[in-house]
Design a protein around this nucleic acid. Sequence first.
DNA 1: CATGAATGAGATTTCATTCAT
DNA 2: TATGAATGAAATCTCATTCAT
Lengths: 213, 213, 213, 213
Amino acid sequence: MQAASPHPSTPDCRRTALITAAISEFAANGYLAASTNRIVEAAGVSKGLLFHYFGNKKGLYMEAVQTCVTEVIRHFDERLGPTSTDVFERLRQYTLAKWSLVEEEPSIFAFLQEAMTNPPAELQTDLQAATAEIVASTYQRLFQDIDTSTFRPGVTVEQAMRLLSWTFDGLGKQYVTILQQQPLDLASVRSVIFGEVDTYVTLLRHGIERDPS
Amino acid sequence: MQAASPHPSTPDCRRTALITAAISEFAANGYLAASTNRIVEAAGVSKGLLFHYFGNKKGLYMEAVQTCVTEVIRHFDERLGPTSTDVFERLRQYTLAKWSLVEEEPSIFAFLQEAMTNPPAELQTDLQAATAEIVASTYQRLFQDIDTSTFRPGVTVEQAMRLLSWTFDGLGKQYVTILQQQPLDLASVRSVIFGEVDTYVTLLRHGIERDPS
Amino acid sequence: MQAASPHPSTPDCRRTALITAAISEFAANGYLAASTNRIVEAAGVSKGLLFHYFGNKKGLYMEAVQTCVTEVIRHFDERLGPTSTDVFERLRQYTLAKWSLVEEEPSIFAFLQEAMTNPPAELQTDLQAATAEIVASTYQRLFQDIDTSTFRPGVTVEQAMRLLSWTFDGLGKQYVTILQQQPLDLASVRSVIFGEVDTYVTLLRHGIERDPS
Amino acid sequence: MQAASPHPSTPDCRRTALITAAISEFAANGYLAASTNRIVEAAGVSKGLLFHYFGNKKGLYMEAVQTCVTEVIRHFDERLGPTSTDVFERLRQYTLAKWSLVEEEPSIFAFLQEAMTNPPAELQTDLQAATAEIVASTYQRLFQDIDTSTFRPGVTVEQAMRLLSWTFDGLGKQYVTILQQQPLDLASVRSVIFGEVDTYVTLLRHGIERDPS
DNA sequence: CATGAATGAGATTTCATTCAT
DNA sequence: TATGAATGAAATCTCATTCAT
């Protein structure tokens, strides 16, 4: 009944706005509790446009996931330079890249993590397909050309990687929790954590390698 | 036509039914997306009774949390026998008790975990108070009287505990994921996992202790 | 969020209002184009109440059908006195009863007719079950104990009945059309039609019976 | 990259596609419940074109009606050969032509019938004008040059025609209903119906004519 | 204690229509 | 001509909550 605004400021400008708003909303509230009303309001577009572009809430969700997957892979491609064959160094670099993602694009990270750990049930299969790419690329990044010659006998590269990964993730959560509870300045918290990282690395070297330096 | 029963079948029978239904609903859908309609339907009681007992959805949620906290503590009290001073043995027993909780009361576990990791924002402070008890009791159970004399210098009991805890949790998630994807019989998966636990324990002993046997 | 009005003036008063409003709306617009918004507005109740009582639009539709079926059967039970064995007289009485229904309860008639001739596809099977009663009762009323001894050889009672039924229905529609186009007073139109009925009856007697008086 | 075709494949090709799609949609769902979205989708053209050509939904509806009216008249012109003066034969030929229309162009027939019996209220007057042509042409076809010399006194040609028309229409509906409920092969149902037609014709001859052969 | 009728806001989605391109 | 982005009203339905009984 009403006319459209004369010039869409930039091509796909509204589409992008919708996806951005959707990522924040889904990250904050999960799939079911997210409100398409709030999304269009945040994006500053009409209610109808969301469904014109994405068909339904599920379509919007899937497109948002796709956007994040692409962005995350791009982020890692950019951050991860020449790789080391040392499992500790490899995972250290990967973890740093991941933490920089958390800091620079918190909602993208939060959204994707939520999408991969608490998938909305009715989207589970679609999601697995959409996130397969990120899983495969991560696997490649982490495991390719690791030097296992220094490992204790019986220790596999997968076990070593998992152990390191759990450790660094655990440290990451601790770091987030501390920041949430008493908002210190980021720099000082970071230095504490980085100190602790060294302790854990030393500790795990003694576990994983035969003859750690 | 029908004599009014002086006592409802059991005192608090309906209250319990409501809490049980609520735990399942909240575990399955989260706070916001949970429906009080479905809860009263599952509990087989009238709509009004929920609000008569608990005031509002938030009240019901908090009571459900309280019930779970109590139940979890009771569960650990029952399962955890005389404790060892060895950090590995202590955490092994604790982890076994936790896994038995997951198997016996999956919705209680799922609900509490969700409540502690994705708290509904508006209930965050209330939740911290309610779960403080469980946090404190767990801390006590894990850290009291641990023998640190065998530790490498510079390794604290908290670090050792965290490392073990992250490892066992990681293994637990792996075990759940495997079961979800290809529903093997529980027994065989369990034996594989238990074997892997030993590998990790050996590995971590070399990291944590000075002179592991 | 808001309280209910203290006294529901009569028991089931709102429920009845909803069904009445629904019958009119469905009769006027058909199932798909009917608006639950307009129904609740016409009934003077809240939007939620409709779905509290009937679950969804389909449930309301089916209850409305049921109500009409009951009412129609009641109407015929009341109007049809002792029956004649003459096929002409039998159908004459039945048709009069039907026309009085059209006049007294036009929306009930319009709604049921629409429901039986243009069923909403997704409700087709449910509708057949609901209207089976009215079909059976009508069949009984029309065909039981008809005297066919005067029929020409080869003419069955079903054929005779159909022929008369098509004729009277055709006349009925003609009568409605005339009234719609130029709203004369009802009485004069009726007298014209009743005159014509006699012509047709005479005509059909010569077709159906061997030796018409 | 692709040369703009100077002429769209056929002139009015899109227009025709729109009208065809509209006829199906209106026939299936009625005016109000019909969706312009589904129409453009079925026609494979853009949303804007519909309104460019027809102004609005109402305009499209009226053009669709017009198209059908023209098509129906063309159909009868083609099928109805030299006419008989016998009222039975005249109506028999007309009915056969009508049934062939139902079989060959079911949506045209369904749409027009719906448009003439359940007109969308706000279009009622427009519709009467549009369908006047078909009414007049049908009247002409049916009534012109009928030999009434064999009629019983008091029986008019209109009465005879109506009676036959109601009968054949009734038989037609019966034939459709039977086919819908138990999808027998069309041929066998048709033969049954045609047999019954003869019975009715004989019967009605005795009613209408003084001295039927 | 216990019920369920009652509410209105808000959920997702479809609608006919406009207009810059 | 032809497109499809854009709109906001209105569609059906669910929500947490209240309160007379």
